[in-house]
């Protein structure tokens, strides 16, 4: 289930008190594809982490009816497990596990009744991304492109309607990156999920509904442009 986002007065400070992120207001409709770009250290990843409830911040981050920052660590984790998938620049898979085990890792801590659904969705997702779910090889033997596709399958296996991606193509060579962008956009469109992707990759940014530019912890403008596709 996808959710609209409403951010108000979001402020993240460093341990030293320096402002890392300052977002007075940000509203995104459910199912939006949003690119986030900006120079290194501008606060892109911090924004993503704040939206995922991974760090302490002031203000409100509201996903649908859920006020994320008001929840404790366990509540936020439960929200992520239910509604939010993450994709990282360097994949962050469990190297010793196979593709399906990685994609369905959430089944390990899901309620027993929900486990099979997660595994099925993970297997379907892997197949849809061109990866054989029955291949038991540890993912360390897969190529970078394959690994990132496994990570995408993992992010969607929980049935999450929100996908946050942090430089998903930055560790891939051009061909693999292009393929991943195609797959990612297609899957998100198919499922109607919201995608917020931090990226330097213009190929990815160009496919988004809306692009935010961050500089010095602030969102500049807020230009909306039609998807290139």
């Amino acid at each position: 289930m996808t959710l609209p986002l409403a951010v108000r007065d979001l402020r993240v400070a460093s341990a030293g008190g320096r402002a890392l992120l300052d977002v007075p207001a940000l509203d995104l409709p459910a199912g939006a594809l949003v690119g986030v770009r900006g120079p290194s250290g501008a606060g892109k990843t911090t924004l993503l982490h704040a939206l995922a409830g991974l760090l302490e911040a002031d203000g409100t981050v509201r996903w649908g009816e859920t006020e994320l920052l008001a929840l404790g660590a366990e509540g936020r984790a439960a929200f992520r497990a239910r509604s939010l998938g993450l994709v990282f620049q360097d994949f962050l898979l469990f190297e010793e596990l196979g593709a399906l085990e990685n994609a369905s890792v959430a089944a390990m801590f899901a309620a027993p009744v929900a486990r099979q659904a997660i595994r099925d969705r993970a297997a379907d997702g892997l197949r849809g991304l061109g990866i054989d779910p029955d291949d038991a090889r540890p993912v360390s033997s897969h190529s970078g492109g394959e690994r990132q596709r496994i990570a995408v399958a993992r992010a969607l296996a929980g049935g999450a309607g929100l996908l946050l991606a942090d430089e998903p193509t930055a560790s891939l060579h051009r061909d693999a990156a292009d393929r991943l962008v195609d797959d990612l956009i297609r899957l998100v469109r198919e499922t109607g999920a919201t995608l917020i992707a931090v990226s330097h990759d213009e190929t990815l940014i160009a496919r988004m509904d809306r692009v935010l530019t961050i500089a010095d912890g602030r969102i500049e403008g807020g230009a909306t442009h039609e998807a290139a596709a």
């Binding site: 991974l54 984790a77 992520r80 993450l86 959430a106 390990m108 801590f109």
Partner: peptide, 16 residues
């Protein structure tokens, strides 16, 4: 540490 952080980011409960 990284795997633990990853599990938390993926929404694993603390007890898991």
């Amino acid at each position: 540490r990284r795997q633990v952080a990853l599990l938390r980011a993926l929404g694993a409960p603390g007890r898991f």
